[in-house]
Write a protein that binds this DNA or RNA. Structure first.
Lengths: 111, 111
DNA sequence: CAGACCGGTTTGCGTGACAAACTGGTTTGT
DNA sequence: ACAAACCAGTTTGTCACGCAAACCGGTCTG
């Protein structure tokens, strides 16, 4: 069994970052959410949420559609298919890495 | 059940950061390691590893002892007791958050 | 004894996260 | 009718962080 720590150190920070992991995970439970709902769910500030959404959108993990609810603007956010896959894969990978780390023991101990 | 996403977004980045999570997790499997062994395990550059160890030590998660192996310097690194607890707690929390996220469904859907 | 090597540390720099300030429009108060 | 407050976000500024390259004291090799 190869050591999982190098893979651990190389985790994709785009999805691993706590705020974004919260966003994508929340969206994978919601399928869609508007900006303020998402803000309340995650507890992020508006600016922060906006910035993170920008990055997730640029990476193609999230789709953002703006329309008007009555006379007010409103933004709806949803995971893209790749976004859903990446989020799931990340959680699975974390779980896998944890288990492999637990199973691992130093075979070639340092001299 | 309260929504886990806010807690997710607020994860402690000191231990959550991939490189440091790799270091602490590796150490929790090793109990002690020297600098180069740890570097090979994690695949980090020397400078990078040194900097991360500095932060972990400053936070009291890691103990660093320098001695001489023959005539060469050598640094041994080990988790402190709190370091071990924090690392374990973080993995447990991740697992818990994942399960809570999966179980969660929007009760008050956005208007 | 000069140059390569070892075991790290320090410096420099580009990114990134975050909150505060701003924008463009809408509603409320008087 | 007009100002003040509010809403739904976006942009700006700042500070910290991760990363690799340069550096450094000491050791081994030719």
């Amino acid at each position: 069994m190869t050591a999982p720590f190098e893979e651990l150190a190389g985790l994709d920070k785009l999805v691993h970052e706590p705020a974004r992991l919260a966003i994508t995970t929340a969206l994978s439970a919601c399928h869609e959410a508007d900006f303020l709902f998402l803000q309340r769910l995650t507890g992020l500030s508006k600016g922060n949420l906006s910035a993170h959404l920008g990055k997730l959108e640029a990476a193609g993990l999230v789709a953002i559609t703006k329309h008007f609810a009555g006379k007010r603007p409103q933004t709806w956010i949803s995971l893209t298919e790749t976004g859903r896959q990446v989020t799931d894969a990340h959680w699975n990978r974390l779980d896998d890495l944890r288990r492999r780390s637990r199973a691992w023991a130093p075979e070639d101990t340092p001299p």
